[in-house]
Design a protein around this nucleic acid. Structure first.
Lengths: 148, 148
DNA sequence: TCAAAACTGCTATAATATAACACTCCCAAA
DNA sequence: TTTGGGAGTGTTATATTATAGCAGTTTTGA
């Protein structure tokens, strides 16, 4: 995400926080900017390292708290298979997240499906299973890494 | 999995190892039995603890190596959102794994879809992304935990 | 203006996972 | 039959990821 887009995102999130009566504090702003500026999913301790360039010797909970906050409000997703975090551009909360993750360059492309794919939905129905959230992580090679 | 089924699984895996020229060693057998006997996904350190009832003071690598071995050969899956491992009953290697995970009782039900759901497949095509593996983890409540 | 809620900073520690190295076991080729 | 190599183990140490708990600060709203 370029600087311009990061700025916009910060504005959107700040507006959201104000509207919802939540605080858009310094550590939160920094973490948001750091994750947004990264061109690929970024781990908590890498976030923390970058945070160290902006705050005085921050500790893990500072990063994790901000991450948790943004996850809860739908502005970030955790990518389980990477232990890493990415910005979610969708301006809505959704129960599911899905990513194509390139194992060569490490970039993750989010596919904003709104519903659980039919095949899987059918299985949950058959099992009498009630879905509260889901995620799909697809590994492979992205176009750029296939045609170098 | 009951004792009878664990026994069968062990036989199947042992036969597979022999056929493929791999060793079905003591630590491997124990780890397989422990994971198979668990009624829900089990973490590496819980496996290790159980292993301690069968071997003399085993260390983390002993558990992790066996887990890695079984993952590679398609007899176990890792559930990323739980940091835990389960037996895969399918007698084939597959590129994808999918689970319904009950957040109440912790059990995981595998759905053995052989192909990436069409919606997701369409997205990978559109992106020129070549899939090497994928997983879906669906959280919610299982039938038993809905009708107690 | 003050109480409550939200948030931060910090210490400590939990939980998960792997690197590296010496040693053993087993098979198969000489 | 020995011997050499690959597969596997045992062990130490350490890396990586994540959270509990508590004291103090900021914000808000009654």
């Amino acid at each position: 995400m370029n600087k311009q887009d990061v700025k916009k995102l910060v504005q959107v999130v700040e507006a959201y926080c104000t509207k919802e009566g939540m605080r858009f504090t310094d550590p939160r702003r920094h973490v948001l900017e750091i994750v947004a500026a990264s061109d690929k999913p970024i781990g908590a301790y890498d976030i923390l390292a970058r945070l160290g360039e902006r705050l005085d010797n921050p500790k893990p909970p500072t990063a994790y708290r901000a991450i948790e906050f943004f996850e809860q409000h739908g502005f970030m997703h955790r990518i389980e298979s990477l232990n890493a975090y990415v910005i979610c551009y969708a301006d809505h909360r959704h129960e599911g997240s899905q990513f194509m993750i390139c194992d060569v360059c490490g970039k993750a492309i989010e596919t904003h499906l709104c519903h659980l794919p039919a095949d899987l939905m059918a299985r949950t129905r058959a099992e009498g299973f009630v879905v509260s959230g889901w995620s799909a992580e697809i590994h492979g090679r992205c176009r750029d890494c296939l045609n170098p």
